[in-house]
Nucleic acid binder design. Structure first.
Length: 104
DNA sequence: AGTGTGACTTGGG
DNA sequence: ACCCAAGCCACAC
């Protein structure tokens, strides 16, 4: 291990239930200063295949990165199951978003 | 080795 | 609030 993908996966597995994290935050925790795109790519590539909590990853402003019909519905549903409310504009509950979102 | 692309981010008009 | 441009990183062709 040590490859970028592995590190990102590790961080993703560390995201607790009922919380959300940002692409930039995950990248930063993985050691990538600006690897937001890399995280997104990895998730799109093999999140479901590797059992990663892809639904807990949202944009920097708390909005869902996926577009309607491309999995957004699924993400919203999964978050709702964990107690994370999503607004009609596609943004997660500010309370939960303020709770995590950046891990320093 | 070069080019294109993506579930991003930030800043400016 | 909305749209556009530039920056950055890893991967596939």
């Amino acid at each position: 291990m040590g490859s970028t993908g592995e590190r990102i996966k590790e961080v993703l597995r560390g995201v607790p239930y009922g919380c959300v994290a940002t692409y930039g935050g995950i990248a930063a925790s993985a050691g990538l200063a600006n690897g937001a795109r890399t995280v997104a790519r990895l998730l799109h590539s093999s999140a479901a295949s590797d059992g990663l909590p892809w639904w807990r990853i949202v944009r920097a402003d708390g909005s869902i990165a996926l577009r309607p019909g491309a999995g957004m519905e699924e993400q919203v549903a999964r978050l709702a199951d964990e107690g994370v409310a999503v607004g009609s504009d596609g943004r997660v509950d500010p309370a939960v978003f303020g709770r995590l979102s950046r891990w320093s």
